[in-house]
Write a protein that binds this DNA or RNA. Sequence first.
DNA 1: TTCTTAGAGCAAAGATTATTGCTTTTGGAT
DNA 2: ATCCAAAAGCAATAATCTTTGCTCTAAGAA
Lengths: 171, 171
Amino acid sequence: MLTAIYTAVGELVGQGADKISFPVIAERAGVNPTTLYRRWPDVNALLEDVAVAALTRDGESVPDTGSLQQDLTEWANIIARDINRPERARYLRAMVAARVDLVANCAITDTRRDQAAEMVRRATERGEKTPTVAQILDHIVAPLYYPVVFALPLDQDHAERLVRDVLALAR
Amino acid sequence: MLTAIYTAVGELVGQGADKISFPVIAERAGVNPTTLYRRWPDVNALLEDVAVAALTRDGESVPDTGSLQQDLTEWANIIARDINRPERARYLRAMVAARVDLVANCAITDTRRDQAAEMVRRATERGEKTPTVAQILDHIVAPLYYPVVFALPLDQDHAERLVRDVLALAR
DNA sequence: TTCTTAGAGCAAAGATTATTGCTTTTGGAT
DNA sequence: ATCCAAAAGCAATAATCTTTGCTCTAAGAA
């Protein structure tokens, strides 16, 4: 039931459907539209729920290679690969469209911040100089998301360049 | 006629209306819905046109203070102030929603790149060491847009910190 | 001035979406 | 097994959006 609905939404978002309405979702999920109208205040709310579910399932473990540079590089590449997948990119845009503040805060930013903090903590323990968590978010995460959100052409080695830059800020 | 339509759209977007349809726009603009249906393929197309018009009219001149640091600081603050205005933020999100690749490329990125290039050029002529244009886009522009797009809380002095960081990359 | 034509309005019809009262199913507790 | 309550389905209705043929207006050309 619920998973059928989530799946339906995921498929619609994934294939870039531009007419995502309750009736459309309901038909694809094999449920009655009324169910959706009764359970969610509007389509955006449902979209939000699905987005949270889709974006928080990060089995992604934080890289732990023994060097901050490698950790960040692997991490940045994981993020880059993830958000550049077409359907993932559409999720992001759909969320932005829906002004899904909650998702933005919880699922994306918080997770990324925690992961960055973890890597910095380990590096500090090893005695490495590190940039701040805020710097990592500003200078790695943001530049990775920016082109995806705005549908700009992605360039190779972006992640590597960002890591190199941010490491120059290590104190 | 056209300006009435654009104005109507602008007002609706500006006040965060979530039901932006041709009939609604038409009524506010005092035109017949048919006109809109016949002239634009769908609402997003109209939104795109309006967004282009709204975002390309940058009378913004590039700062020229005699120092790259000051140029970048003023520039970053101009950008930050601009895109953090609520209705401007909504435009951005609306554009992202509409997958307005064209707008993203032309109006935003290209303009910003040109402006950055101009400041770098001047600084280089003065003999200053500078970061690359790509670095400025990655480490100043992207981090400024990121929180706006994702509706994250904005923090004071963000622009200043970004400029300080990016200048550490100057070569 | 008259003709031409692109664009805008009007109105009717069709399609889709949203709401609501009521019935039916389902899963768990007794 | 039976009962209960929450959730889902159903169907009728309303509201909104979309399409289409036709008419009317206005700006430029002959």
